[in-house]
Simulated assay, not measured.
Amino acid sequence: MRVLIIEDEQALAETIRRGLVNEGFVVRVEHNGNDGLWAATEERFDVIVIDIMLPGLNGYNVLREIRKRKIWTPIMMLTAKDGEYDQTDAFDLGADDYLTKPFSFLVLTARLRALIRRGAPARPVELTIGSLNLNPGRRSVTRHGDEIPLTAKEFGLLHFLMRQKGAIVSKSEILANVWDPAYDGAENVVEVYIGYLRRKIDVPYELSTLQTVRGMGYRLVADKPQNAHA
């Protein structure tokens, strides 16, 4: 199992490298974004770990360029920051996981193995359900060609729902994947943002695609007129 670590803190990078080698991984380490991007695009790895705060290209730009070149290797982002927008930005750009420093090496190893087991299926740069289109790289959403402005949280929520391909997701699943892990407020914040999204992606187009499934959660389906029967 080959791992690329892109981390500018050399002591931390070496600690991770030694630990992963002892676990049977083959590890390459780069200490800046430019060299990390070159390695990611020129060699094959089973998983890539990228620190967000890097000299040269920052981690977000490295991630963006990797996905832009249609390389779908699973990617975990590392950062000393801990905020919902950092996570949303990383997932919107194509990251598969996110770990905040300081972290347990056992947790890092377990999550890397999980990413490797999932593999790297090809995924489209854009997500489309009916006439609704979302481009994570450009952070844009359109319906019938109209640009729909969304806040960062609305965008993260829509992105999560579109990735589920019409499956029903619960409030707790949405909170776990879209909100900060430290969030301890009421679950009804999900209902509030679902309402915000409906007013932007459905109401102006007389559609009912963002559906509430009573007692279960929410799902996003292909174009459905507001007056259509279930």
Rank of each mutant, 00 (worst) to 15 (best):
I5E: 05
I6T: 09
D8Q: 02
Q10P: 08
A11W: 04
A13W: 08
E14Y: 12
E14R: 14
T15S: 13
T15H: 12
R18N: 13
G19V: 03
L20Y: 04
L20F: 01
L20S: 01
V21M: 10
V21Y: 08
G24W: 14
G24Q: 04
F25T: 01
V26W: 13
R28L: 11
V29I: 06
V29S: 12
W38S: 13
A39L: 05
E42Y: 08
E43H: 14
V47N: 02
I50L: 11
G56I: 03
G59M: 03
Y60G: 05
N61D: 14
N61E: 13
R64K: 15
R64Q: 14
R69F: 08
T73Q: 07
P74A: 09
M77L: 10
D82N: 15
E84N: 07
D86C: 09
L93Q: 06
A95D: 01
P102L: 08
S104H: 09
L106I: 11
L108M: 13
T109N: 11
L115H: 00
R117T: 10
R117P: 05
V125R: 15
I129T: 14
G130Y: 03
L132N: 03
N133W: 10
N135I: 02
P136W: 00
P136R: 00
R138I: 07
R138W: 08
R139M: 08
R139E: 02
H144Y: 12
G145E: 09
I148V: 05
K153G: 05
L157N: 03
G166H: 06
A167M: 10
A167G: 08
S170G: 06
W179T: 01
G185M: 02
Y193D: 14
Y196R: 14
I201P: 00
V203P: 05
P204V: 04
E206D: 11
L207C: 09
S208Q: 12
S208L: 12
T209M: 15
T209E: 10
L210W: 01
G215R: 04
Y218M: 04
A228M: 14
A230T: 08
